[in-house]
């Protein structure tokens, strides 16, 4: 697993209070990991802070799963 993927998983585990085994690439933040709309906003903000990127709202809407977050950040992280 890439360093970015490791960090993304760690953030999700920390913020959503879930087990590492639940954080699979297909896992949806809202449907599988118990996030509500505010949790999702917080996750996006944490990704922005950790990876020093700015994720526009229209692109944030497309980040709904662990895998989507990892591939977005692998592409955009500085």
């Amino acid at each position: 697993m890439s360093e970015i993927a490791e960090k993304v998983k760690a953030i999700i585990i920390d913020k959503l209070g879930v087990e590492a085994s639940e954080v699979t690439p297909e896992a949806s933040f809202t449907n599988d990991l118990g996030a509500d709309s505010l949790d999702t906003v917080e996750l996006i903000m944490e990704f922005e802070k950790e990876f020093n990127v700015s994720i526009p709202d229209d692109q944030a809407e497309n980040i709904g799963t662990v895998g989507q977050a990892i591939s977005y950040l692998e592409e955009h992280a500085k």
């Binding site: 505010l38 906003v41 917080e42 903000m45 922005e48 802070k49």
Partner: peptide, 9 residues
Amino acid sequence: PRFNPFFIP
């Protein structure tokens, strides 16, 4: 502005 979404609530 990186205010946490849980800040106000």
